[in-house]
């Protein structure tokens, strides 16, 4: 089975200063990869590379051969801070803008409209379709942007810090939804909140300049339950103090 995305010996950055170096990563169908790391460690740069917003300085990014490179089969949920909440745009138009990502065949207008309707209903936001984006709660906004990401039937769903949309109480709802979506698509989720994502993701990549891939999500629910508080920090090494393997 070929990887959907294969990143080979890739370095990337801005103004000739690399932020990421010698990164190797493969994302397969039905992967649920959590990308964690400190701010400035290169998590967002990695997403930009996959989205095609940034060209690698060295190395390659390869999509699986059956995937058209130009129209990427990628759904993308941006960070909430990147959204202009004063922009005069309705929920309906935001969702429909997801059609930009779709392949040329699906651009037929009535098909797109039907798909928008289905998604609005599925995500329970059909009743707020005419509201302005700035009038929504964090949870509603998250669902609207998830609709936009899903409109193109993506094979890979990228989420950049999705937990910043809502407070902790509503996070569970999102992750349950992602677990369901994961049956049909690979998911790459960027977060700095390791404790919350660790019970849902299947594999973990630690990004801090270099990328370290942990094929097993070795943090078990039992370990997390051992503490009667949310876990915000996990370090590497030997149990009992640490739970992920050391980087070589």
């Amino acid at each position: 089975m070929d990887a959907l995305i294969k990143i080979e010996n890739l370095s990337a950055g801005y103004d000739k200063t690399p932020v990421l170096w010698d990164v190797n990563l493969e994302v397969f169908e039905n992967d649920f990869l959590g990308v964690i790391g400190p701010n400035g460690g290169g998590k967002t740069t990695l997403l930009k590379i996959i989205l095609g917003l940034l060209n690698p300085m060295e190395g390659r990014l390869i999509f699986r051969s059956d995937i058209n490179n130009r129209k990427k089969p990628i759904g993308y949920l941006p960070q909430v801070k990147h959204i202009d909440k004063n922009f005069p745009i309705t929920v309906y138009d935001v969702v429909r803008s997801g059609s930009l990502m779709a392949s040329a065949v699906k651009k037929n207008s009535s098909d797109v409209k039907q798909k928008v309707e289905n998604l609005l209903n599925e995500m329970g936001v059909a009743n707020i379709r005419n509201k302005a984006i700035g009038e929504l709660s964090g949870g509603q906004m998250q669902r609207v942007f998830l609709c936009r990401a899903l409109l193109s039937d993506p094979k890979i769903l990228l989420l950049d810090e999705p937990d910043t949309f809502v407070d902790n109480r509503f996070e569970g709802e999102l992750y349950e939804r992602l677990r369901y979506l994961n049956k049909h698509m690979a998911i790459v989720l960027v977060s700095h909140d390791v404790g919350t994502i660790s019970s849902y993701v299947k594999t973990i990549a630690c990004v801090n300049g270099e990328l370290h891939y942990h094929p097993d999500n070795m943090i078990t629910q039992e370990q997390l339950n051992g503490y009667n508080c949310p876990i915000k920090l996990i370090s590497h090494g030997e149990i009992p103090h640490t739970v992920l393997k050391r980087h070589n």
């Binding site: 989205l51 095609g52 917003l53 129209k71 990427k72 990628i74 993308y76 941006p78 990147h82 959204i83 202009d84 922009f87 745009i89 138009d93 935001v94 803008s97 930009l100 990502m101 936009r148």
Partner: peptide, 9 residues
């Protein structure tokens, strides 16, 4: 509305 998204597409 979202230049980055349009670029990615």
């Amino acid at each position: 509305f979202d230049e980055e998204f349009a670029r990615a597409a």
